[in-house]
Amino acid sequence: MLTYTPGSTLVHRLDPRTKLAVQFAFALVAFTASTAPQLIGLFVVGLGSLRLAQLAVRAVLRAYWVVLLILALGPVLAAVTLGPPWLRLDPALVSLRSIARIVPILFVSAAYIHTTPIRETRAAIQRTIPGRPGQLLGVGVALTFRYVPVLRADLRSVRDAIRARNGDTRSLWERSQRLTVLLVDRALRRSDQLAIALQARCFAWNPTLPRLQFSRRDVPVWLLSIAFVVVAVVDLLGL
């Protein structure tokens, strides 16, 4: 599971609002890309972001392997038909082209998670979206980033406990039932602990967040974001 790792790379030193902007702009241009050169360019940008963040491609693939596996099934399912000729290549290529747009987005988002503290993400959201909606979104994103790794650790510990008690000798249905019940029980306990912790720490909707400030190094990234948006608009309008 990818989490924030302190560092001094260029991506670490960027303002989180800049990194969020380039993510959204890159996602926009990715979903409008259709030609092979455009898709290659998306991968170049995605791999370049990992390089600048000093994040190994192997670590990203290991973190997103479930997502990538599900995406890989898309072209296979698209190629299968219920009658002759049983397999069709054109739908598989269309599905593969769609999937090729998503992988670079995962690379860019992984670079963001690796280089941005959770509190800075919350500060960027709350200072970009005013009022209670921004506060609610900031809190939701912060809690998601903090508790997804915890829930994944609970999943591993429950699975190991079942195996230690020879649970893997049972049927797949029984194991799935047992795993689901235990995970739901742990998730409910975590929610109760979270509520008590928030009360104990006098949870506030508008806490003192980190101070954010743009610098000269953010300017080229903002220009890149604008260029992404322009390219996406040109593709959408067919100019």
Rank of each mutant, 00 (worst) to 15 (best):
L2T: 02
P6S: 03
S8L: 06
L10V: 00
V11I: 10
R13D: 06
R13K: 13
L14C: 06
D15E: 11
P16N: 05
R17A: 01
T18P: 00
K19L: 07
A25E: 07
L28F: 14
A30T: 01
F31N: 08
S34Y: 14
T35S: 13
A36L: 12
A36V: 14
G41Y: 03
L47M: 12
L50A: 01
A53S: 10
A53H: 01
L55K: 01
V57Y: 05
A59Y: 09
L61S: 04
L61P: 01
R62S: 09
Y64C: 13
W65H: 14
V66D: 00
V66C: 00
L68Q: 11
L69T: 11
L73F: 13
V76H: 03
A79K: 08
A79E: 11
A79T: 07
A79Y: 06
A79D: 13
V80C: 04
L82N: 06
L82Q: 08
G83W: 13
P84D: 15
D90L: 14
P91L: 07
A92H: 01
S95K: 08
L96I: 05
S98H: 11
R101H: 02
R101K: 15
I102G: 02
V103Q: 05
I105G: 08
I113L: 15
I113P: 10
T116V: 03
R119L: 11
E120Q: 15
A123K: 06
A124L: 10
R127G: 08
T128L: 09
R132F: 15
Q135R: 09
G140V: 15
T144Y: 09
F145H: 13
L151S: 02
L151P: 07
A153W: 04
S157A: 15
R163D: 13
A164F: 04
N166P: 09
G167R: 11
R170S: 05
S171R: 08
V181L: 15
V184G: 07
V184K: 03
D185N: 06
R186E: 11
A187I: 08
L188C: 07
I196G: 05
I196H: 12
L198F: 01
A204V: 11
W205A: 08
P207G: 03
P210F: 01
R211W: 08
L212H: 06
L212V: 02
F214C: 07
R216F: 05
D218M: 02
D218W: 03
W222P: 00
L224P: 02
S225V: 06
S225N: 08
I226L: 14
I226A: 15
A227R: 04
A227P: 00
F228S: 04
F228W: 05
F228V: 02
V233P: 00
V234F: 11
D235Q: 14
